[in-house]
């Protein structure tokens, strides 16, 4: 059974200015131990999906479709069951490690709290477990008595990962976990996530706008635009041979150093992400698309399998030949 399955998930925020469809019919499956990356610009709905999985969206937000966590619909759970599932089945690591930790509590106490809320563990056992978890993310156990501000940015991000792992979840959702970090520290955290995934068979949903990081960290990739997945496939394929023009532009934003074709030729995508409350007609990407044809203005192509039968690729563009 899949760890996580999103079936036709739609999320609509209700604001004073009217309804804003943030996610518009997303299907996504993550098998146990698999790593899936969700890429896209800010406002494309990728972080909303993270919130939708654990029902962390603002009250009043409309969610349609199904979120199956370990086969169980998250939106049918009673509050007690939901609390149990959060952290034990799936846990989230957010960006901005400073804000996610309580500044007035020692980091060890914060991890211990998560352990004790979700299991009948006595204080000593919890303390031992905190030490193990910290060592696991590469922080000396003695640092448990530090306060968040006494740790560096990279260490705080590691503490958050330890916190997420406290109840041995099967799925880790990482929302921009390395965005605020320095290059070298980012590499350290990515390395850590990769080793956790390898050693513990953790499934990961990795969300970021940085396609190059995703390619590095994930087996499969899904590219989102305007609340929908426009391309999925194996990470390497999406990065090296993108099918959708949007994925192509995203991939092109990361030059290969040493590649003469990108030397002194920065490539990017013109225009800005569309306003989710006023999406263009047809394919929402057509106003920014360099290969748009007339049909794009009227027809919104659905995701369809492409390439050879053995590939896992799909794309939503009139230009890709359906398999």
């Amino acid at each position: 059974m899949s760890i996580l399955e999103l079936r036709d998930l739609s999320v609509t925020y209700r604001t004073e200015g009217g309804d804003v469809p943030a996610v518009r019919g997303v299907n996504l499956t993550i098998e146990a131990g698999d790593t899936v990356g969700l890429a896209g610009e800010s406002g494309c709905g990728k972080s909303t999906i993270a919130g939708a999985v654990l029902r962390l969206l603002p009250a009043g937000t409309r969610v349609d479709g199904q979120v199956l966590l370990d086969g169980e619909d998250v939106y049918q759970m009673n509050p007690g069951r939901l609390r149990a599932v959060r952290w034990t089945s799936a846990a989230i690591v957010f960006q901005g490690a400073l804000h996610s930790l309580n500044p007035v509590h020692r980091v060890g106490a914060q991890i211990a709290e998560a352990i004790r809320v979700h299991g009948s563990v006595d204080g000593r056992a919890a303390a031992t477990r905190v030490g193990e978890l910290l060592e696991q993310v590469g922080i000396p156990a003695s640092r448990a008595s530090r306060y968040p501000h006494q740790l560096s940015g990279g260490q705080r991000q590691r503490v958050l990962i330890a916190l997420a792992l406290a109840c041995e979840p099967k799925l880790l959702i990482a929302d921009e976990p390395t965005t605020a970090l320095d290059v070298m520290v980012q590499a350290q955290v990515l390395d850590l996530l990769a080793s956790l995934q390898r050693d513990h068979g953790l499934a990961m949903l990795f969300i970021t706008h940085d396609l190059s990081v995703l390619t590095h960290a994930c087996r499969r990739l899904a590219v989102m635009y305007a609340g929908r997945i426009v391309e999925t496939g194996l990470g390497v394929d999406v990065f090296r041979d993108p099918q959708h023009p949007y994925s192509r532009a995203l991939a092109g934003a990361f030059p290969t150093i040493g590649d003469p074709s990108s030397r002194l030729r920065p490539s990017g995508l013109a225009g800005d992400p569309p306003d989710p409350s006023a999406l263009p007609t047809g394919c929402p990407f057509h106003p920014r698309c360099t290969v748009a044809v007339d049909a794009c203005r009227t027809t919104d192509v659905q995701l369809r399998p492409v390439g050879s039968a053995s590939s896992e690729a799909s794309a939503a563009c009139v230009h890709v030949e359906p398999r």
């Binding site: 610009e41 706008h209 940085d210 532009a249 995203l250 934003a253 920065p266 490539s267 990017g268």
Partner: peptide, 8 residues
């Protein structure tokens, strides 16, 4: 966003 960096 990475996508618009190139243009800038």
């Amino acid at each position: 966003d990475a996508s618009i960096r190139g243009e800038i």
